[in-house]
């Protein structure tokens, strides 16, 4: 009976009951303590899972703000630590040798974290630079041909300028938008690039899943695994990038 009540509660909360069933549920809810507890449990669980899995752009914006403010308010470490050192006695004193070794180890660990060869490998392995294929229609190179040449030569800075003009002239051109977005990301204009790619993903062009994969790569480069997974999971079976996305998901 309890299990039926839990399922009934879930169906009620999900708006899955018809009007008569909902009214019956609400009527029982008034005096059935057990049902009330199930509903509370359900709402708590739902809130927690939303907190964990929601793609929360507002939270991302807040984190950016906090990171910027952290630099302003938590910097100047040495001065503050020196100040504390004068009032706080050291709990344990390491021998000079041990301090030297642990210092070296810390530098090594830090170095490894920055260098992070394992991360680089994964990014290198999965971020095959896309090639911009355009059919040349005559002897004279068009702006699109020139942009493609620059992009394929990995001259992203110059490609970005050329693609920006093309994008401005025709913002509905999905191919231009995609390569422009990738160029922006490659030249450290990550936020702008992601905006374009996200918009592209929302549409129905043939570049929809290319955009999702490029988004995933942009996060992989920053070692943001949750976001990388989020975008890889958007690529459905049947899409060109599906196999690669699945392989990467397994490795993450």
């Amino acid at each position: 009976m309890t299990e039926d009540k839990i399922l009934w509660t879930a169906r009620y909360a999900e708006g899955d009951l018809n009007e008569t069933e909902s009214l019956a549920y609400e009527s029982l809810l008034k005096h059935d303590q057990e049902l009330k507890e199930h509903l509370l449990d359900y709402l708590e669980a739902h809130g927690s899972l939303r907190m964990l899995f929601a793609y929360d752009n507002e939270r991302k914006s807040l984190v950016s703000t906090l990171e910027a403010l952290n630099e302003e308010y938590f910097d100047n470490i040495e001065a503050a630590e020196a100040e504390i050192d004068t009032v706080q006695p050291k709990v344990t004193k390491l021998s000079t040798y041990l301090r030297w070794v642990s210092g070296l180890a810390a530098v090594f660990v830090l170095g490894m974290l920055i260098w992070a060869p394992w991360k680089g490998d994964l990014y290198e392995q999965f971020n095959a630079a896309p090639q911009m294929n355009v059919a040349e229609r005559g002897a004279e190179k068009t702006d699109l041909d020139q942009a493609a040449t620059l992009f394929n030569d990995k001259k992203y800075q110059e490609a970005k300028v050329a693609l920006s003009k093309l994008n401005l002239a025709d913002s509905q051109n999905a191919m231009v938008t995609y390569y422009y977005g990738v160029s922006l990301i490659e030249t450290s204009e990550v936020a702008k690039g992601r905006l374009l790619l996200e918009e592209l993903f929302k549409g129905d062009s043939v570049y929809k899943y290319d955009a999702a994969y490029a988004m995933a790569m942009s996060y992989l480069k920053e070692d943001k695994k949750v976001d990388t997974r989020f975008w890889l999971e958007k690529i459905p079976d049947g899409a060109v990038q599906f196999e690669k996305a699945q392989q990467l998901l397994k490795k993450l």
Binding site: E44, G47, N70, F74, I77, E81, V91
Partner: peptide, 25 residues
């Protein structure tokens, strides 16, 4: 026994927890 980076992390985490709590609970 902490440093300024620890303090920044703790501060940021606490603010994000409060955000989460406000938004989802």
């Amino acid at each position: 026994n902490g440093n300024a980076d620890d303090a920044a992390d703790i501060f940021q985490e606490a603010l994000v927890d409060i955000y989460n709590q406000a938004k989802y609970k």
